[in-house]
Nucleic acid binder design. Structure first.
Lengths: 235, 235
DNA sequence: GCAAATCGGGTTGTATACAAAACTGTGTCC
DNA sequence: GGACACAGTTTTGTATACAACCCGATTTGC
């Protein structure tokens, strides 16, 4: 390890607490830098962040409660691999919660809220132009979370946040390469409806946006299509 | 400490793992044996269950993720005290999720499921007859959770379970003494609709049942009505 | 040569020890 | 007499040490 790398690790060391580790891992999962099934060894993570296993364990348990990682007793923590069934359930839940949330958001959004949403879309475009798919996906999720926040229902927003986190794993596992990731249009239209205060239209746009997303997944009965081979190989 | 007490503690000691501690605390909160705001000192809990603080911390963190306890840094863990706003949100979320879940349950319930629900009601009556309000409340919550399980949507069922857990705290804080806890009629009618497969009626019954519950709470703008004095007194 | 059992390395689960922070009570100064 | 400051005690946050367990490899028996 060279001097510079050592120094940057040292910098992390000073700031890294339990929450830091959890959000860093969470971000890596959201941006598809950590693939489903990857083992997260405690010692390994502890050394990377320069903290003890105690805090790593707490972070991993927090992620496990959000169902982002799967902890198997005496086996360790792995990035979760949602089953087909879970994938369907997550999107059904989103289709139940988010349209209504978008409707509320359209009724409550302030000009500041709308500016924020527009900035999100700009960032998303920038990430796509930079071919940074991971960041684009993360920003796309943040867009949905922002709408839930605007709807001013913290409890439901929390559920939606958890669903979006799992959606990121589901997309990593079941996304069809054929379908393009050009959701920006849908997001743009949504912001339009929200800024006009057209709640009915916002609700309908969100519903169809989620149906589009859902149908861009390959959720046919075939357990873990691309995973079973790698599973036998890696962990 | 006498011999016998020592032995029973020792028995606990052998079986108590992290999960055990968490569910024991959770049950105590559900049955209103632990009041909102109660401090859960790590050493105290650790000694009670005969485990180390390590496992107690994990259990408390798990409960915190379910929003049953509130962990304040360097202050410790306290049984959560949902605000009026949170209380409203929780019941709004339940009114959004549970009617639809009851509808699904009515469409999918097997005879075994219906028997289980009927047994739940019998148990509930028994607890009420024994004047065991805590147990009755817990069983009432389990009834709702069971319906969510029958609906066969694990993701949404998990959300509902979390909402019911928080509802228990909300009831502890905001329940109006005037209103009686005679929900058994509502539960009975629900089982009737479900066993007939009348999904429309099940949905409507669940909705009105939740509205009844909601309106039996005192959620007027008056922050933590019975709590602010005790709050100044205890913690 | 193959199968089964056993032994070793490595990883997780739990307990304990130490460091840091908050709360309590006392004392002093204004 | 009241308010502030300081120190002691208690409690939490983190690191480390040890025990239990799982997995893989080697060895042994058939």
């Amino acid at each position: 390890m060279n001097e510079q790398a050592n120094r940057s690790l040292e910098a992390l060391k000073n700031t890294a607490s339990g929450e830091t580790v959890a959000s860093a891992l969470s971000l890596a999962i959201h941006e598809h830098r950590l693939a489903p099934g990857t083992k997260l060894g405690e010692d390994e993570v502890a050394e990377i962040f320069g903290v003890s296993r105690t805090v790593v364990r707490a972070a991993l348990q927090a992620l496990a409660h959000h169902q982002l990682v799967d902890i198997r007793r005496n086996r360790g923590a792995f990035v979760a691999q949602p089953s087909l069934r879970e994938a369907r359930e997550v999107f059904e839940a989103r289709e139940l919660l988010e349209p209504r949330t978008a409707k509320s958001a359209a009724m409550r959004a302030t000009p500041d809220d709308i500016d924020l949403l527009k900035r999100h879309i700009v960032d998303e475009h920038a990430a796509l132009d930079a071919a940074d798919q991971g960041r684009a996906l993360r920003l796309s999720g943040l867009f949905h979370i922002e709408i839930a926040r605007i709807a001013d229902q913290a409890t439901i927003a929390g559920f939606i946040e958890a669903l979006i986190a799992r959606s990121s794993l589901i997309i990593a596992l079941y996304w069809r390469r054929e379908s393009a990731l050009c959701e920006s249009f849908a997001h743009h239209a949504l912001v339009g409806a929200i800024s006009e205060g057209n709640s009915q239209r916002a609700e309908e746009l969100m519903r169809s946006h989620l149906v589009d997303l859902h149908s861009a997944l390959d959720l046919r009965d075939r357990p873990n299509p691309p995973r079973s081979l790698r599973d036998a190989l890696r962990p």
